[in-house]
Design a binder for these strands. Sequence first.
DNA 1: CGGATGCTTCCGCTCAACGGAAGACGATCG
DNA 2: CGATCGTCTTCCGTTGAGCGGAAGCATCCG
Lengths: 276, 276
Amino acid sequence: MAGNSGKPGQSVTGKALALLGAFDVMHPRLTLSELARRADLPLATTHRLAGELEAWRALDRDDDGRYRIGLRLWEAGLLAPVSSRLREIALPFMQDLYEATRENIHLAVRDGFDALYVEKLSGHRSVPIISRIGTRLPMHSTGVGKALLANAERAFIQAYCERPLPRFTRYTIAERGRLLRELRNTVERGYAQTNEEMTLGSCSVAVPVPSEQGAPAISLGIVVHSVRADLPKLVPTLRSAADAVALRLTETADDPAPGFLHDLPPLSAGNGGGAG
Amino acid sequence: MAGNSGKPGQSVTGKALALLGAFDVMHPRLTLSELARRADLPLATTHRLAGELEAWRALDRDDDGRYRIGLRLWEAGLLAPVSSRLREIALPFMQDLYEATRENIHLAVRDGFDALYVEKLSGHRSVPIISRIGTRLPMHSTGVGKALLANAERAFIQAYCERPLPRFTRYTIAERGRLLRELRNTVERGYAQTNEEMTLGSCSVAVPVPSEQGAPAISLGIVVHSVRADLPKLVPTLRSAADAVALRLTETADDPAPGFLHDLPPLSAGNGGGAG
DNA sequence: CGGATGCTTCCGCTCAACGGAAGACGATCG
DNA sequence: CGATCGTCTTCCGTTGAGCGGAAGCATCCG
C-alpha cells in the first residue's frame, strides 16, 4: 500500500471492506482493538479508516466507544435487488400466508452453498426459530434450503453433497445417499419438507419460486411446531403464493425504480458526502 | 490522493463511499459512466474502485453490465442496530397490529430532519403508499414524522420550522404557525394524526415509542384509506404496542448478540475476503 | 463507413496512505 | 499513591499504491 511497511498488495478499499466484514451476527459491536484484530490490520490504520467510515456513517459509535454498522450503510444495503425488488414484491404474499397460518414465513435465495434468508415474518404465536433476515443456513437442513437445493443443477447438488454435511439434531439428513434420495423425492412431490432437522420441535414445508434460466433461485417456506401434522395441506397455498411472486417478478423485470415512485421530497440528513 | 492529478484532499475511502452513495431509490442501477458522473470521479478511477467493490460483492453487476448494490453490502447493513435490534423487537408487535387492521404499519426513527422508515408492513388490502423501508420522508407531512417531531426538543422543533416546509397536497401543513399549533395538539392528545397531508386519499395515526433521554427517537403508525373515519379508535392498540416495544428495548439493552443465537453452522459462501 | 458513446487497459509520476512509536486516558492492583 | 496494563488517539518521515489521461476496443446508429 502507499505506505512504508506491512504486507504490501492490499488496497485501501480492501482494508475498508475488511473493516465492514469484521462485523457479523455474533459480533455486531466491536471496540477499536477488536476491529483491528478481526480485520487483521494495525491499530493505527484501523483507527484512521474507521474514522473515515464513521464520518460517512457507514459506521456508528456507541456511547461506550464501540463501533457498529451505521445507518447510512443500512440505507445503501436496502437498495440491493433482494431487498428493493424481491422483498418488496414478495411481502404482501407473505403477509397473506402469515394471516392464513400465523406461523413463520420465510423467503430465501441461494447464495453459494447457503440458503440466505431475505425475509422472515413471525408473530408472537409463531415457533421461535434461529433464522433471521440476512443470515445463512445450510441447504440440507432447512425447508427453504432443500427447496433451493433440490431444484439446482445436477452438478451443483453433486458439489454440495461432497462437502461435509453438518448435523444439528438426530433427524438431520447428514448422509450423502439419504440426502440425494430426499432431494429426488422433493422434486417429485414438488415441495420440500423437514422434520426437526434443524431444530427439535419445529418442522417445515417449502416450495421453489419458479424462475427463468440464469435468474437467482428463490424459495418460500413455512415453519411450524412439530405437533402440527397437517403441513402438506399448506402446500397449495404456498405454491400459489410462490407462483404469484414469480409472475410479478417477470412482469416488473425491467422497471427502473420499482413501484409508484414519484419524485421524493427534498431530503435533509444522511447526505454527509464523502469523508476526507 | 496517492496519484498525480485531480483534486487532492479526497481519500480513497471517501471515493469508495462516494460510489456507494451514488445509488439511491430512483437510481438503483447505474452504468459505469453514470456511476462516475454521480460520484464525481474520473472514469478510470471509478472503473478500478468499482471493480474492487464488486470483488467483495459490495456491488454486483447486471447482465447488461450495470452496477447494483451487492448482496454482501446488504448483509452488512442488516447488522445496523435499527435492523438487528429495533426491527427484530418491533416486528411481532407490528404483525399484531397488521392482523388487527390489515393496513400499512410503519416503524420510523428520527434521523436529521427526516423520518427514516425502518420497517413497513402492508398486505394486498392496504392502501398503496410511497413509503418504503430505508427511505426518508418529511416529518411535518407524515404520521410517524409528526409523532417524532412533536416529541423532539424545543430547539429542534424550532430549527425544523425555520426550514422550508414542502407542500405535497392542499392539506399539507406548510405554515410555521399552523405546524407549531398542530405539534402542541399532538403532544396533548398523545398521538399524531394526518389527513391527506402527504398523499390524497390516505390518512394516518401514529404514536411515539417512549424512550430514554439520549436514545434515538422512534415512532409507530398506521396509514389507512381516508374513508375510514374511526382512526382514533386504533390509538389504544397502537400505544400499547409502542409501550411493549419500548419495554423490550430497555429489557434487552445490553444483550451482545440479540435473541437465542447458539453458534451458527459453518457458512460457505459470501466470505470472499478482502479485494486485492 | 464515420462518428458518437461507453467500457477496459496501460503506465510513469507523485502524494496519500502507512503504521511504529509515543502520548493520553482509565481501570485495576498491591 | 505509584506501577502496570489495556485501550484509544495523535504525530510524522517514508514510499509504493493509487492515480487518471490517453489510447485501444466494442457497440450502436444514421
